[in-house]
Every structure is written in structure tokens, then in C-alpha cells.
Nucleic acid binder design. Structure first.
Length: 943
DNA sequence: TGCGTCACG
DNA sequence: GACGTACGTGACGCAC
């Protein structure tokens, strides 16, 4: 049949459907061998229902499925940043591409792809040819980039939503008729495809402008006439970029296609190859449906899972229906027989939610009190092991309560399960339980962690504690631990909780954890954070647990001596301060200090905060010290208070507190890292915080001398040099910065040289300092005010620097604007490694907006640096397994090791390789990562 | 418990 | 045109 009038061509945007199917469906795998086939399944369902629906008047006479051939197209020649923001292809999607081609052929549909062209261009070309031949065209896609083709006998159809997209729908989306869509797209840009567009102009403004001026060229020619100064300038400054953008979004409808329309004539599916393919994929439901339609016998497929219905991409599915929480259904396990029955149930299921109850939040001192388990929502058990008699009063005895299994007996039964490779152990904050079990000689694995799942999906939206997650995702308010233990001074430990109460609380925790896991698991794929969870979060659990258990040796006597010295010096300063003030007062009280300085001594310009007290922060006091001529007493007082404050801080937060943090059993300090604390992906160290040990002042740095290596050992410190700036240079693609890092030259001096046209050789240190401040400012989402305050220069001058900087490095400004635009559109930003950080405040009005904006700019940079060191840490244990060395601490861009003296050089070489190569192979950075190393008997020497 | 302050990257 | 601002943390002491 020759294509012509009366013919109807269907063009299926195959690549788009693969992605949509992948993200919409849970991670299906072929049962027989685990091959990922979720996207193929979704694609086949779509294709089949498309073919099955093609009956009646509207039925196509010709049909083709069009695919992208490769990522490189002619658009990369026009603009090297095109689609540069695209996240890496998920590992489990790539192998599905060839299968979708096979599927298309199995359904007897023409399968089209062409090197160097996107599917969209082929679609545009065929659509044009079909129209010229007098036929009708339906494009099966919902991609907005295809909407420019709609009209004059061409329409689109969203197969997932079963929705027709015609001229009206396009106009609704873009605010203009289809023939002007490319103008709007050129102006508005596209953060997903990285089409630049005009900064500050979105679809709405673009449509407004196009409708007013008619078309893009007229608009650009008459840009001077635009009233709003920002828009006017954006258009004038970016005219070239806008024209490039237009070329990027304009589809090429004259691609040299190798097929004639006649070749695309609809062909009935042939039963044999189609059934063969579907059975091979083990799609049971679809095989049956297709077999019925083709009136053939469906071949038997052993035990294949049904193909689930699809959901909208990117959206989390609600928690599945669940039984109510019923505390009466929880079982208390008191003997080996009952526990063995649970173990059988666990083995049958292949997974179990586990929770431990202990006497302390400090895992290194905590005693195991009981264990709870759950494998079916609503059903859970608690195994009391260390409950003591006599309740919470002081006279409770230390004898164990009756009716408990022996600890060793219970653990002997559980150990094989907890260590079984075939049984998944699910926990909420598994690092805690992992350590408790590790101290009992049990290496728990493999694991899943609901807290980390939530973190991967919801960072920036809320915290990830169990109580919050339960309420938010299960609509269930969990029993508060306070109701069992009390609070404050009279609080008891869990071993004093009566067993029947403990059962309800503890079993509920396991029940909740299991339900959260079932709710979260399929959503990881929908939100596209499976890789983040599996490569950056979950594997960190055992690594951090080992580091925390190792601890770092701290010399309490050194700290004690320092505390005494500080106390003496402080007493002297305090006397001096009271003398100047002419009255005794509490130097540690900012309120009293403020009143003395600003009311009694008459210093002017005191600023009151929201509590009505004067601000007396270091910056305020430093300003007062410059008033020597006006108010010498106040200047002296402020200076002395600053000294006192420094000592007070060092003593209370470090030399005193660290002594009490030394574990008497190990003689070492064991911090705890929260994996899901910081929204950007950074770790946070608590109890004690070992990530803020002083280093910037000489006096403070001496505290690091108390952090020592064991006998015959050394401490080795490796830290990334300028990692955030390097990442900025890469993501914002700044040629000068990238080259400077490749050449290994001083980055701040280079910046100064570019900005002020001075040679790097013999540079004024002040000029370099200013450039350094700007480089850091950029990472933080720079503002004139902030830079001015940091450099103590007038605001106008600071703004001048920033303008100059943006002029020299326009890519930085583009990056910042693109990031903010992305956040506004999506509600999150992303790191190079796919980590999502939500920015719920980004569309807020008022002062909030500034914070959110800067946080959004900073998050992908800080977050990518955090991802890099996480990757290094995860690989480190295997890399140094043969060395007599232990990884002890992480301080954001630094790793601290303890190693036998003879192996220092080997460790440095090995660990440096791991750290410098940590981005590979997920991301290829355009700049090298460089790691500096040091070693010594203590942390001060090593750093 | 909230705030101010200050230690780190 | 004014608003207020560098990003991300945790721990301490004071004052309520």
C-alpha cells in the first residue's frame, strides 16, 4: 500500500517510554537469572496495548517505533554542554536497551534508529513526509520537545495517561501555538537537557514576550524596548545563547532517513517469534494476554512474577494496605523452641526486621537487653535477655527477671540467621544494632536500613528518625520511649522496664521497621535513588561501625594538664576583666557582658537580639577592640574577654569534655557518625564531635597533641586539596579553573590574576586573600553583603569584585542560575553522583528565599565532595586489608589512619590512590583530585 | 528548652 | 525598594 491520503502513521517515541517504564516500575528481574527487565516489561505492555487499541477508524495503517541511537548528536557540536547535566545511566537500565529493540521486532513493528540523530529528529522527519504525502500522524509520546510538531494533521498521544495532546493542550502548556513553541523553549531553556536559554526567564515570561512581539527574532531585535530592566538585560546579554538554544530545541525534519513510509505499513504480529520473546522474558501475564489475542497456546513459564501496573514516574507510591497495629499480637519469646519457630519463619521468608534494646545509646558501653524481630506486618516478637528485677527504683536488684532465655543460648540460635548471606536483615539505623551484635561476636549481613532509605529519598524534607517516619509514612504514632524510661534525672535504663511493657514497645519497633521497608523499597526506584542508596549509604554502615569501634587513643593526662593551665589563665583574665569593669560579673554570660559594655561603659552601636540581650559575638568584640582612642577601657575589656572566651571554649568543650569521653575499657574515644544527619550527604560526628577539634589557632591546635597513636604506631592523615573548588570547576565547567587545577598552580592566585590583571608571580598577599574569599563565597552562594563582611570592606566594593568575577568566569553565574532554576522546577538539587537534596523553601517569598537559594547552590558542591569521600571510605577497608592499618576518623575532606610504623609509606600510597580515584568510574572529573598526606606520633603532627 | 557563641570543613 | 544574608555541622553555658 502506497502511503498517501487516508493513511495514518503512528510514531512511537521508544526511548522515552523505556525511561518512563524504568522509573515507573519497581525493579523487576527475570526470575530465572536475575536479569533486570522492568523497563522491558513496561515497554512491552505499552506497545501491546497500543497495538491492541488500534482498531476502528482511527487505526494506523503504518507504524514505527523510534529510538535514540547514541548520546552524541549534532547538537553536541552546537553546544558542548547539551544534556551535560544528565545523570549517569542507571546500571540496571543499560542492558535493557537491546532487549527493547528485540521486543519491537518481536511485535513485528518497524524499529528505527540512526546514528547522530535523536529519536525526535527522525520522528519530525517522518511526520513531515507523511503530511506531505497527505496522511495523518499520531506521535505516541508525551515529550514536550515533540510538541512543536503538533498541528496540521499531527497530534500526540500520551499512552501512559491515555491522553490526546493537540494544539489546545500544547498551548496550555507553553502559552503559545505549537509553531512558536521552539521560541519559548529557546528563551526559557531547559535545565534537564541543559539548554541555557535566557537567565531568569521561564516558560511563562517567555510566552508573554513571544505573544507580545510575535516571534523570537523580532523580540531579540527589539529587545531594547522591553520595559522590565532585568528582562531587557537578560535578552540583550544572552542573544547569542538564546539563538544557540533555539537551534538546540529545533527538531531537524530533514534527517536522511533510510526508510520509506511504505516500509512502515502495519504488519500483524507473528505468533512464533512474539511468543518466543515473551516467554524468554518470562512475562507471564502478558504472554497469556497475547496468546489469547493471537488464539494460540500460551507456553508455560515456570514461576514468573506478574507484570505490575504502572505508576507515574518520580512519584512515591503510598504505603500498601497494612493490618492495624495490635500490641496484643506481639509475642514474647522465652524459650529455644519458640525462637526456633521464628527462625524457621525467617528462613522461609528470606528477610527479617531486627531491633535491639540496650541500656545505653553509646554502643560501646551498652548492654544487650533484648531483641525484637518481625517478618510479617502486624506480627512481631520480643526476646527479653537482660531484664532485671525490681523496676526502676534505687533498690532494684541486679538479679535477672524470670522467664528469659540465656543470652548465649539465644544468640547461638540467631547467629546463623544474622550472618546468613541469603537472609536480609532490615533495621532502622542499623549501624547501632550492627555494633551491638559485633560486640557479641556476630557480623550482621546483608542489611537494609530504613533510615538510610528515607535519607536517600527525602534528604532536606525532614529527619529520618523512626517516630517521624512511622507517623509520616504509616500514619502510626509509635510508643514513646519516654513513657517507659521517664526523662531527666529519674530516667531508668531499658533493663529495668518490666518485660510485658518492653514487649509492646520493642516488638512494635520491629513491626514499624518492616512496614517502613515494605513502603520504601519500591519507591527507591521511583525516586531514582537506588544507586545512591546502594553505593553511598548502605555500604557505609559496616565501614563506619568499624571505625567507631576502633576509636582513637587519647591521652587523658595531657588533656588534664591543659585543663589546669587553661583554668589558671582564665582566673587571671577574669580578675583583669572584673577590674576593668569595676564590678564582679559572670564573664560567661553574654547578657551581663553586653550590659556592662553598652550600658555601663557607654560603647555605642549595641545591637539587641530577639531575646533583648546585646549581641557580643567575636565580630562585635573585635570591633570594640579598635576603639582604643575613644573608649580604651572597653577596648581592653573586649580584648581580654576574647582571650577568656577562647580558653573557656577550649577547656569546656575539649580538654574537660574529652577526658570524660575516654572509654575506660579501651582507653580510646569512640565517636558516633550520623550518616543521615546532614542534608548534603556529609557525615556528622557526635558524642563527642571529633570533626571540630581545634586547628586554626596555635593554642587550640595543641589539643590535637592529645590524640595519639598506640605503641609502635603512627597516625597518618590524608586530605583532599580544594575538593569543593575542584568540583565547582568541573560542574560549572570553568576552563581557566580546570586548567589551573590540571597544571597544579595556586588556584586563588590564578583567580586574583584573572580578576585584577596582575601576574601570579610576586602577587600581593592581600589581593590573593580577597580572591580566596571570593572563591569560597562562590561555593556558599555569594552575596555582596556576605563578602563585604568577610573581607571587612565596603559593600559596594565587594559587589564590584563579584561582578568582575562573574565577568571573568561567566560559567559560574550560569551554573548558579541553572541550579536555582532546577531547584525551583523540581524541588530538589542533585550531586554528580545522583544524590538528591530537597529544597522545599526554594519557592518561598521573603528573607527565607535568600537562604534557600544559597543552600541550593551550595548543596550539589558540598554534597558531591561528601559523595567522593564516602566512595573512598567504602573502598578503603578492602584496599588496606593487607596492611597493619586502621581507618579511624573522617573530617569531611580528611581521613585519619593508625598504622604500624613500618607501613606508613605503603599506607599513604594505597590510601591516596583510593581517595584520588574515588570518583571513578561513576563520574569522570575534568579536574584531578589531589590528596595531601602527613604522619606523626599525634594528630597535630600528622595533619 | 532556646539562644548565643564558637569549634571544624 | 526593602528585606536580611555567606554553606554545612555539634556542644557548651546561660537564662528562662
Amino acid at each position: 500500500m502506497t502511503f498517501g491520503k487516508g493513511c495514518h502513521l503512528h510514531l512511537i517515541d521508544g526511548s522515552a517510554y523505556i525511561f518512563r517504564a524504568y522509573h515507573a516500575l519497581p525493579p523487576l528481574t527475570r526470575k530465572s537469572d536475575g536479569l533486570p527487565i522492568g523497563a522491558v516489561a513496561g515497554f512491552c505492555n505499552m506497545l501491546w496495548s497500543q497495538l491492541a487499541n488500534n482498531k476502528g477508524d482511527d487505526a494506523p495503517t503504518h507504524i514505527a517505533c523510534v529510538f535514540d541511537y547514541s548520546s552524541k548528536t549534532f547538537r553536541d557540536e552546537i553546544y558542548d554542554q547539551y544534556k551535560a547535566n544528565r545523570p549517569e545511566l542507571p546500571e540496571d537500565l543499560r542492558p535493557q536497551f537491546p532487549l527493547t529493540r528485540e521486543a519491537t521486532k518481536a511485535f513485528n513493528v518497524a524499529c528505527l534508529e540512526m546514528e547522530g540523530y535523536e529519536a525526535d529528529d527522525i520522528i519530525a522527519t517522518l511526520a513531515r513526509q507523511a503530511r506531505e504525502a497527505g496522511g495523518e500522524v499520531t506521535i505516541i509520546s508525551s515529550d514536550k520537545d515533540l510538541m512543536q510538531l503538533v498541528g496540521n494533521g499531527v497530534e500526540m498521544f500520551d499512552a501512559m495517561k491515555s491522553k490526546r495532546i493537540g494544539v489546545d493542550e500544547v498551548e496550555e502548556k507553553f502559552g503559545v501555538k505549537p509553531d512558536r513553541v521552539i521560541d519559548v523553549q529557546a528563551l526559557a531553556g531547559d535545565s534537564v537537557d541543559n539548554v541555557p536559554g535566557a537567565p531568569g526567564i521561564g516558560v511563562k515570561t517567555a510566552a508573554l514576550l513571544i505573544n507580545e512581539y510575535g516571534d523570537l527574532e523580532t523580540l531579540l531585535e527589539r529587545a531594547e524596548e522591553i520595559k522590565q530592566p532585568k528582562r531587557r538585560q537578560a535578552l540583550i546579554d544572552n542573544a547569542d545563547l538564546i539563538r544557540i538554544s533555539k537551534r538546540l530545541v529545533t527538531l531537524d525534519d530533514h534527517t536522511p532517513v533510510e526508510w520509506t513510509l511504505d516500509e512502515l505499513e502495519v504488519r500483524a504480529p507473528e505468533a512464533e517469534p512474539l511468543m518466543g520473546f515473551l516467554t524468554q522474558m518470562e512475562f507471564r501475564t502478558l504472554t497469556k494476554r497475547v496468546a489469547e489475542a493471537l488464539k494460540v497456546e500460551a507456553p508455560a513459564i515456570p514461576e514468573a512474577p506478574a507484570v505490575p501496573v504502572s505508576h507515574d514516574a518520580e512519584e512515591e507510591a503510598p504505603a500498601p494496605d497494612q493490618p492495624p497495629f495490635d500490641h496484643a499480637k506481639y509475642e514474647c519469646i522465652r524459650d529455644a523452641g519458640a525462637l526456633t519457630r521464628w527462625v524457621d519463619l525467617i528462613r522461609e521468608r528470606g528477610y527479617v526486621a531486627v531491633d535491639t534494646e540496650t541500656t545505653s545509646l553509646d554502643e560501646m558501653r551498652a548492654e544487650l537487653v533484648g531483641i525484637s524481630l518481625s517478618v510479617i506486618p502486624g506480627e512481631a516478637c520480643y526476646i527479653p535477655l537482660g531484664h532485671k528485677q525490681g523496676g526502676g527504683d534505687l533498690f532494684g536488684s541486679n538479679d535477672l527477671s524470670d522467664g528469659q532465655m540465656g543470652l548465649d543460648e539465644a544468640l547461638a540460635i540467631l547467629k546463623p540467621v544474622l550472618e546468613d548471606d541469603a537472609i536480609l536483615k532490615i533495621g532502622q539505623n542499623m549501624k547501632y544494632d550492627w555494633k551491638i551484635f559485633a560486640r557479641q561476636g556476630i557480623q550482621v549481613g546483608p542489611i537494609d536500613d530504613t533510615m538510610l532509605m528515607s535519607y536517600a529519598m527525602h534528604a532536606g524534607q525532614h529527619n529520618h528518625g523512626m517516630d517521624l517516619l512511622s507517623e509520616r509514612y504509616l500514619s502510626h504514632k509509635s510508643i514513646e520511649i519516654k513513657s517507659l524510661l521517664g526523662s531527666g534525672k529519674s530516667a531508668i535504663t531499658f533493663d529495668r522496664v518490666p518485660i510485658d511493657e518492653a514487649v509492646k514497645y520493642a516488638a512494635e519497633d520491629a513491626d514499624i521497621t518492616l512496614r517502613l521497608w515494605q513502603a520504601f523499597k519500591p519507591n527507591l526506584h521511583r525516586v531514582q535513588v537506588t544507586t545512591v542508596y546502594e553505593t553511598l549509604e548502605r555500604p557505609l554502615v559496616p565501614v563506619l561501625a568499624d571505625m567507631e569501634m576502633a576509636g582513637i587513643r587519647v591521652d587523658g593526662q595531657v588533656l588534664s594538664r591543659m585543663s589546669n593551665t587553661f583554668a589558671q589563665k582564665m582566673a587571671g583574665l577574669e580578675a583583669e576583666i572584673q577590674e576593668i569593669a569595676g564590678q564582679p560579673f559572670n564573664v560567661g554570660s553574654p547578657k551581663q557582658l553586653g550590659e556592662i559594655l553598652f550600658d555601663t561603659m557607654g560603647v555605642e552601636g549595641g545591637q539587641k537580639g530577639k531575646t533583648g540581650a546585646y549581641a557580643t559575638g567575636a565580630d562585635v568584640l573585635e570591633d570594640i577592640t579598635t576603639l582604643e582612642d575613644v573608649n580604651p577601657d572597653a577596648a581592653k575589656l573586649a580584648a581580654t574577654v576574647l582571650d577568656w572566651r577562647q580558653l573557656s571554649k577550649l577547656k569546656s568543650t575539649y580538654t574537660d569534655a574529652l577526658q570524660t569521653a575516654i572509654n575506660p575499657d579501651t582507653g580510646r574515644v569512640h565517636t558516633s557518625y550520623s550518616i543521615a544527619g546532614a542534608s548534603t550527604g556529609r557525615l556528622a560526628s557526635t558524642d563527642p564531635n571529633l570533626q571540630n577539634i581545634p586547628v586554626r589557632t596555635e593554642e587550640g591546635r595543641r589539643i590535637r597533641e592529645a590524640f595519639i597513636a598506640g605503641p609502635g604506631m603512627r597516625l597518618v592523615s590524608l586530605d583532599y586539596s580544594q575538593i569543593e573548588l575542584r568540583i565547582l570547576a568541573h560542574v560549572a565547567d570553568i576552563p581557566q579553573l580546570k586548567q589551573a587545577f590540571r597544571d597544579g598552580i595556586d588556584i586563588h592566585a590564578m583567580t586574583a590574576s584573572e580578576m585584577f590583571n596582575v601576574p601570579v608571580e610576586g602577587m600581593d598577599p592581600m589581593v590573593r586573600r580577597q580572591a580566596k574569599a571570593i572563591n569560597f563565597g562562590v561555593i556558599y552562594g555569594i552575596s555582596g553583603f556576605g563578602l563585604a563582611r568577610n573581607l571587612r570592606i565596603p559593600r559596594a566594593e565587594a559587589q564590584g569584585f563579584i561582578d568582575r568575577y562573574f565577568e571573568r568566569f561567566p560559567g559560574i553565574k550560569d551554573y548558579m542560575e541553572a541550579t536555582v532554576a532546577f531547584a525551583k522546577e523540581n524541588g530538589f538539587v542533585q550531586t554528580l553522583f545522583g544524590r538528591k537534596i530537597h529544597t522545599p523553601e526554594i519557592n518561598a517569598k521573603g528573607p527565607h528565599a535568600g537562604f534557600a537559594r544559597r543552600a541550593a547552590i551550595n548543596a550539589p558542591i558540598q554534597g558531591a565532595a561528601a559523595d567522593v569521600i564516602r566512595r573512598a571510605m567504602i573502598r578503603m577497608p578492602a584496599a588496606i586489608a593487607d596492611l597493619p592499618a586502621t581507618m579511624l576518623l573522617q573530617v569531611h575532606d580528611e581521613l585519619l589512619f593508625e598504622v604500624e610504623e613500618g607501613a606508613v609509606d605503603k599506607l599513604i600510597a594505597t590510601a591516596r590512590d583510593v581517595m584520588e580515584g574515588a570518583a571513578h568510574p561513576a563520574v569522570h572529573l575534568d579536574v584531578p583530585l589531589v590528596v595531601d598526606a602527613g604522619q606523626g606520633a599525634n594528630w597535630a603532627e600528622a595533619h
